[in-house]
Design a protein around this nucleic acid. Sequence first.
DNA 1: CCAATAACTCAACACCCGATGAGTTAAAAA
DNA 2: TTTTTAACTCATCGGGTGTTGAGTTATTGG
Lengths: 184, 184
Amino acid sequence: MTRQAVLEAARSRFSQDGYAAATIRKIAADAGVDASLVIQFYGSKDALFAAAMSLSPTALTHLSQAFDGPPPTLGERVTNAFLDLWEGESQVSEPLLAMLRAAISNDQGAATLREFIQTRLLEQLSPKLPDGHDAAARAGFAAAMLIGIVVGRGIVKVPVLVGTDRESVIRLVAPAIQAVLVGV
Amino acid sequence: MTRQAVLEAARSRFSQDGYAAATIRKIAADAGVDASLVIQFYGSKDALFAAAMSLSPTALTHLSQAFDGPPPTLGERVTNAFLDLWEGESQVSEPLLAMLRAAISNDQGAATLREFIQTRLLEQLSPKLPDGHDAAARAGFAAAMLIGIVVGRGIVKVPVLVGTDRESVIRLVAPAIQAVLVGV
DNA sequence: CCAATAACTCAACACCCGATGAGTTAAAAA
DNA sequence: TTTTTAACTCATCGGGTGTTGAGTTATTGG
């Protein structure tokens, strides 16, 4: 299906080049197709971008499950699940990376990411935390910190972050996330 | 000095709109000047961007000093100094925000931010940490996590992060940074 | 086999971009 | 005052962008 090839090319370009630099012509060329067809399929660049950023609802179940289970190892499970989400299979991570990149250069992208974090992450996850009133803030800051790590590894590619293997990342970061999520 | 007005307009535009959306014409209009003059002053858009991102060497001394002092309160001091740096006076924070925004849309921006984090932050700060071999990694992940918070508050503007006052941010985050920097 | 519908290409439009070069005004130096 | 130098504007170039509409090829259904 050509339509799917266009969508995959768009995902890849948006996640690697950002919204502005990912031109319709390049996406079309990647899919081996004329630029006009892309517009005919998706209507506009904005609509194509929105389609490229949409991800399957099941992608978040893994993360959600990490919040269930024994509190003492919550930080480790959440950190693991988060890295799986953003650094795992391209079908899930590319929309998320595209969202991140777009959130910085594109106003619509910022709104999309804001809405994703607010309603898809925080509102579903924070009720699972122990204690009450600042659970949303705790979940929000933990998510922000983990996204910071993802940005440093996957986008800015800071050598010392990229060169640290997954196991060591967990060892360094999980206790900190634990501290944010459930307190001292 | 008109030259300074152009530079300040550039800083503001780059930090708010990102590299691509901050056009020479808009910057010139902000400074009340013709677009051609901007090019004549700075040579090219890239050169203007580089000039807008350069910050005074004294800006980092505050952060560096936070690494000195008693280890038990290291996390709190570093978190405070970091937020001062990125959310303080515009002359310092705007180049940093511009760097962040550009790092995602512009390849040169990513290289600049990478170099800034690697040589201006990590190489100067990690020697001040206790213990030896993974000090650079600890400092790097702490910086990434704090930058994640800055992105969430200043760029994506997630409501729950923006709505948390400085004092509560320190209370939630400082212990986590402490954990990353000096271990459990 | 033929008609209808979808998939796809081609050429072009209007727009905005960064950059150039020549010309004009203002300030400083002689 | 005259000359030199800097500050600044104007019109324009070439190139890339998203989008459009007409035309062409392929695929499907009766």
